[in-house]
């Protein structure tokens, strides 16, 4: 796990690093699920997400917003995501399980993915991001 929750007064701010853009997106995805449902998350049920956006920040924003939507309407808690990014296009297979009140009530609801403070960067070691979840 290479994402960390950074101090933010009102909301949840995540900082993550990863060797590739796909792994960076997977970290942000894992952080979102961790914040909402806690650490005990299993696989078994798949959902696919395909979308396009003009820049990496929008792609990540739209991807996580879509994950929020699917998780909410299908009542699914995801444990992992297989992500492929090609230019402006993202394809992801999410792996999860039905929401279980006994195990998944450890987190807090995320209302939305904020553009404020959303930044994706790159240096010699790989990629990094900062993102704020509105809770």
């Amino acid at each position: 796990m290479s994402f960390v929750e950074v101090s933010h007064t009102a909301d949840v701010k995540i900082h993550a690093t990863a060797p590739t853009m796909e792994a960076l997106f997977a970290e942000a995805f894992a952080a979102l699920m961790q914040v909402m449902y806690g650490p005990d998350r299993k696989g078994g049920i798949q959902r696919t997400v395909t979308l396009e956006a003009a820049d990496p920040e929008s792609l990540l924003h739209d991807f996580l917003s879509e994950v929020l939507f699917i998780s909410d309407v299908d009542g699914l808690v995801f444990s992992s995501a297989r992500i492929a990014i090609s230019g402006s296009r993202l394809e992801a297979v999410l792996d999860g399980e039905p929401f279980d009140r006994a195990r998944h009530l450890l987190g807090t609801e995320v209302k939305g993915i904020s553009y404020s403070g959303l930044a994706i960067g790159r240096d010699a070691n790989g990629y990094m991001l900062d993102i704020v979840f509105d809770v």
Binding site: E5, V6, S7, H8, T9, A10, V12, T108, V135
Partner: peptide
């Protein structure tokens, strides 16, 4: 109005 983050 909050003054302390959730992490803190």
């Amino acid at each position: 109005g909050r003054i302390m983050s959730r992490t803190q």
